[in-house]
Nucleic acid binder design. Structure first.
Length: 479
RNA sequence: GGCGCUAUCGUCUAAGGGUUAGGACAGGGCCCUCUCAAGGCUCAAAUCGGGGUUCGAAUCCCCGUAGCGCUACCA
């Protein structure tokens, strides 16, 4: 059975890149009957924060793509250290006593740093003696750099990969604090958790050679690797919390009013394509269409902007979300709208009870012209609240010559109407307009303004029907 | 600097030797219409540059250029 993992480090919130990696892993697991493992890579104690961990879990849960297992890397430290010890005694690794500040100096040099030959050549006796005397050291992997060959593997996405031993530096396994590094911890855990497919960002493509070296030295079997193209910001640089801020965080998209499925659909199309021109894909469609071999090799730019007034996110994401908002089963949509209204303090328990049918019908009518969940609160106030402002353009419709005077007579007629429905109301409105010799549009637009305070919205007759006779009559008179 | 990855409309992408280089978003126009959407139709918009290979190249090869990644006791 396939086992894949997503291994975020809790040093910031979950951003689009991480979420996309999670989504691809999950899709791969589900489409092949495998298991999804969440592993929190918290080996860098200094930079980890509780808040970051919470936000990652929250963001991941919001995607509605549950994982099957969860592990904390920090709880597995013993195994990492044991692996380092084993490599040390087999000679595959060695102690490097170079002081930290001196070794960081090396990377400033024009020449690439590969190893410190002096430390590499240290005899076992000297090494043991210096370690026993309490001298600080890091443990490094001894890359067989004198051999002419190299490491090769076949990436699921980037195909054949090869790197000469002589181009790989002697990377650290254990820090001088005794803490394992990412390379060691990640590799040991992948092996012990029996990960079969490592699917991660392309920024790890060149790290994979090190991981393979480690895996082989540890004598464990290699998982398969698949690297994903990177997500770039509009400025062309790799998406990061540092540069691009909260704008690219998953919670931001939730707050913008995205449905999990709309967001996931958008993410899935960044660096992957079903190859048949389909764009709108429901979660189940994604699972059945997903093929790791169809992942692209080119980085994708995520469109967004922090300029006030302009769209904060890719308009295509908004469009896709609108597709889901309209096409998903109404029953499935209702809970999301409920939460949006609750957040606004507009939720009425009657919506779920006596007026449940009304609520469903209203949402069903409203959703045809909305894209985001937040549109229900920012654009539909008049359907849920009795106090609302009249927009300037709506006021203009109301003030057209002859419009306002007709509202009261209309209210009177509607009050007496035997049956109050979309069709019967339409008949009344049109006949009143005809009798007074005005265009129906005048009355229709005026009514919409009086009833909703908006110049735009659903068909006016539908508005009448949604609001119901009582509120309609009252609002027409008030205008 | 070294090593590696990548290169199709503004953006996401299809076409992996033969197509008028297709679709989607965004933009323009038209239809529908009580408004705004939705929906339908339509217009504009791309193969980074240069060399090969081939009857034929977006597609294969080489060179250049550009972008990105790695080059940490970060992950």
């Amino acid at each position: 059975m396939n086992r894949v993992r997503f291994a975020p480090s809790p040093t910031g919130y979950l951003h689009l890149g991480g979420a996309r990696t999670y989504v691809f892993n999950w899709l791969f697991a589900r489409s092949t009957g495998g298991r999804m493992i969440l592993r929190i890579d918290d080996t860098d104690a200094d930079r980890n924060t509780e808040q970051s961990l919470r936000s990652i879990l929250e963001g991941l849960r919001w995607l509605e793509m549950p994982w099957d297992e969860q592990h904390f890397q920090s709880e597995r430290r013993d195994r990492h250290v044991r692996a380092a010890d084993a490599l040390l005694s087999s000679g595959a690794a060695y102690r490097d006593f170079t002081p930290e500040d001196e070794s960081t100096q090396n990377r400033k040099d024009a020449q690439p740093w590969l190893c410190n030959p002096e430390m590499r050549a240290l005899s076992k006796r000297d090494s043991d003696r210096r370690a026993a005397s309490g001298e600080r050291f890091t443990v490094r992997f001894r890359v067989p750099r004198d051999h002419p060959g190299g490491v090769a593997f076949k990436d699921l996405v980037y195909r054949k990969q090869f790197r000469r031993y002589s181009d790989i530096e002697d990377f650290a396994l254990l820090r001088s604090s005794g803490m394992p590094t990412y390379h060691l911890a990640s590799t040991v855990d992948d092996a012990e958790l029996e990960i079969t497919h490592v699917i991660r960002g392309q920024d790890h493509l060149t790290n994979t050679f090190k991981h393979l070296l480690l895996l082989d030295a540890l004598g464990v079997s290699r998982p398969r690797f698949g690297h994903l193209p990177l997500l770039l910001g509009p400025d062309g640089s790799k998406l990061s919390k540092r540069r691009h801020g909260a704008l690219v965080s998953v919670p931001n998209y939730r707050d913008l009013g995205f449905l999990p499925r709309g967001f996931v659909n958008y993410l899935a199309l960044l660096g992957w394509s079903p190859k048949n021109n389909r764009e709108y894909l429901e979660p189940a469609d994604l699972v059945s269409a997903f093929r790791i071999e169809h992942v692209l090799r080119t980085n994708a730019i995520v469109q967004f902007s922090d300029k006030p007034g302009s769209a904060q996110c890719d308009p295509k994401a908004v469009w896709l979300n609108g597709q889901h908002l309209r096409k998903m089963p109404l029953d499935a949509l209702l809970p999301y709208v409920e939460r949006a209204l609750r957040d606004e303090g507009w939720w009425d328990s009657e919506y779920a009870g006596a007026r449940g049918k009304w609520f469903a019908e209203a949402i069903g009518a409203l959703r045809t012209r909305l894209n985001l969940l937040t549109d229900f609160t920012v654009r539909c106030r008049a359907y849920f609240r009795d106090e609302f402002e009249c927009a300037p353009k709506a006021l203009k419709n109301l003030n057209r010559p002859g419009a306002r005077e007709l509202l009261r007579p209309l209210a009177d007629r509607l009050e007496r109407l035997p049956e109050f429905s979309e069709r019967s109301v339409e008949r009344e409105v049109r006949s009143l307009a005809a009798e007074r010799g005005v265009k129906a549009g005048l009355l229709i637009n005026g009514s919409r303004a009086a009833l909703t305070g908006q110049p735009v919205g659903p068909s006016a007759f539908l508005v009448f029907a949604i609001l119901g006779r009582e509120r309609v009559v009252q609002r027409l008179r008030a205008a």
